[in-house]
Amino acid sequence: MKPKFSTLIILTLITAALLAPFAVSPIYIPILREQAFDVLYFLQGNLFKQITGYISLVFVIIEMLLVARKRGRGWKIKLSVPGSMQLWRSIHIFLGVGLLAVVLIHTIGVTGINFNAIFLWVFFAVSLSALVGVVAETGVIESSQKRFFPMLTTATTDGKKVSGISKGNMIRGMRAFWLSSHIILVALFSVMLLFHIFLAYYYA
């Protein structure tokens, strides 16, 4: 089970829709403050923040477990969980978009200031680096039946020289770039998440 390119495009559009409130929150937050102050007070209250925060944390933990399932062999971690690698990769992608939705509910579209703002932007980078990378990679895989793409390099196939780069090499190059970036951002996000939890309880 692997998401098709068309499915990933739909997920990209959903992601764009989930990110849109963060861009327009300076417009609707003052309106909420003036016309529905009680609602805004509840949404920014400790109870709502704790509930949605815990839900977000559950999503993050599940995502980390999915990563361990996907990369357990390379990390020498043995997890006897049913399902293929493609299945867990697909769940990881869908759950990542779901986490973005939960974060939107948790923050009500407010980016915050100082550390919280940086933390949120790092999370956006984590989500987008993965989604854009997977979309681009899947697009190349499903693009055409051509084994080579026009480039400045030359490859050999069936004893003939073909101008271009092979699909396999292109995918490996793309994956090396976006996956490395994604892993670095995930590591940074994990450290910032622990600090965010500490601050949330320290100032609670």
Rank of each mutant, 00 (worst) to 15 (best):
K160M: 06
T111N: 08
G96T: 05
V60C: 10
W178D: 03
T154P: 02
L194F: 00
T52S: 15
L99W: 03
I183W: 04
F195G: 01
R71I: 03
P82V: 12
I165Y: 00
L18F: 14
G53V: 06
V97T: 05
L128W: 01
Y28C: 15
V132F: 14
E63T: 10
T138F: 02
L179G: 11
R175I: 02
A130V: 06
P82K: 13
L65W: 06
A204F: 06
P82L: 15
T138N: 08
I118E: 01
R71E: 00
H182K: 13
T156R: 11
L179Y: 07
A68S: 07
R147E: 11
Y201G: 05
F189C: 06
T107K: 09
L193T: 01
K161P: 05
I171H: 05
V134G: 08
I31V: 10
L194T: 00
T138E: 07
T154K: 15
L100W: 02
L100C: 13
G112E: 01
G98Q: 08
P26H: 13
W75M: 15
V103K: 08
Y202R: 15
M85L: 15
I61H: 01
Q35S: 12
A36P: 02
L193S: 05
L66H: 02
W121G: 04
S90D: 06
S80G: 08
G45L: 07
Y28V: 05
F48A: 15
A125M: 08
E34V: 04
P21I: 10
I55D: 00
F48L: 07
L95W: 05
Y41T: 13
L95V: 08
I9L: 12
S144C: 09
L47Y: 01
L43K: 08
V39F: 11
